[in-house]
Design a protein around this nucleic acid. Structure first.
Lengths: 201, 201
DNA sequence: TTTTGACCTTGAAACTAAAAAAGTCAAAAA
DNA sequence: TTTTTGACTTTTTTAGTTTCAAGGTCAAAA
């Protein structure tokens, strides 16, 4: 069966690409370099991916999948809804630290219909995870709210927004140093604390 | 006395510049155009302002002053702390709608030591206003919190952050259409609602 | 003290050429 | 038949250059 071997090669390409991207950034990585790493020809890459953008997208989708699965695991195994929300903040930090060098922002800036749709799906998935956690919190009597979905969206957006409003200037590459990162995480947790209090009221 | 007349001319220049900036954007406005509007020579402008950036800065400081004074008035006349916080959201919207065409972002991107310091001062002033409102809320028994300054900073940053996290993409010029603007204001008020509940707990 | 015309200087577009990387394809290999 | 490849074309990026509008200066005038 051809598809098995094909999927395997596809995966090898994704791994090689991810390595290059994390090390040198997506924009500085050429198709030839990836091919050389794999000891194959550039033309082979084009047998598996229609173009460079498709490769970028596939890499991004792959790591996004890992991110969401980690979150979903957190949500599934939760003991306390509040604790799950705190843990997700740390999870997100880990993810960003790990993959910030990819220059995802470049890919994410792409505003084609396809990509806007993918972004929307990803946002929705994150909202849903939070909705489930908040629902669990309501069910257990930990929280008190009527519209979990609305609350979840608001919480995610308010938390993410701090990433932009806490730094005193937004760098072009949207990158931030460790110190700033920690300051943001700290603020996110402070906000979550008040937010949770608000949900208990 | 020369300073009086000088200040008057300086003000006329600022008004003319503001008009041009709001109509065509700061980057599309030339010193010659401003001079022509005032029926004076470009060289005259340079008698009052050392360079174009100084003019930009002076215009920005002028409208910022009006913005802060409106906020401070709101804070001074407050009946309910919660209501004051809601009103400030509307005040901010009004301000942004009015001056978004200036292309302030360009000026704000300037990261010289001087400008970073000015930005810091402005942020601090906004924090202070919020701190005072929250302190008033605590004093009146409306809120229950131990660190008003920390809460104020968090509230401002969380609110402002929504400006970036609610839109599905951040435009280069940081501009947003009316529809998006309304969505953001709505979110800001929702957040404020929960935030205030959290402060009452 | 303030204004100005004439002048100098600078920086952002607008081209250009060269290089590098993206992308294609017919033929070979598996 | 599926996969791979070298040799090829096309597109994009970069670096160098020119040009011109806009920024900025100054000595003289008002």
């Amino acid at each position: 069966m051809q598809t098995e071997a094909k999927d395997e090669m596809r995966d090898k390409i994704l791994d090689a690409a991810l390595k290059r991207f994390t090390h040198y950034g997506a924009s500085k990585t050429t198709m030839n370099e990836i091919a050389d790493d794999l000891h194959c020809s550039k033309a082979s890459l084009y047998y598996y991916f229609p173009d460079k953008k498709a490769l970028h997208t596939a890499v991004l989708l792959k790591i996004a999948e890992a991110y969401f699965q980690a979150m979903e695991k957190e949500a599934a195994e939760l003991k306390s809804a509040a604790q799950a929300l705190y843990n997700i903040i740390d999870l997100r930090k880990e993810f960003i630290s790990k993959f910030c060098r990819l220059e995802l922002f470049q890919i994410i800036q792409d505003n084609t219909t396809f990509f806007l749709a993918e972004k929307k799906k990803a946002k929705q998935r994150e909202f849903n995870i939070h909705t489930d956690i908040i629902k669990a919190g309501i069910a257990s009597g930990e929280f008190n709210a009527t519209d979990p979905a609305l609350i979840a969206e608001l919480l995610v957006q308010a938390t993410m927004g701090l990433r932009f409003s806490v730094p005193d200037h937004i760098r072009e590459d949207m990158d931030l140093d460790d110190e700033m990162m920690d300051a943001i995480i700290e603020k996110q947790k402070q906000l979550l604390e008040i937010f949770i209090k608000g949900l208990k009221a």
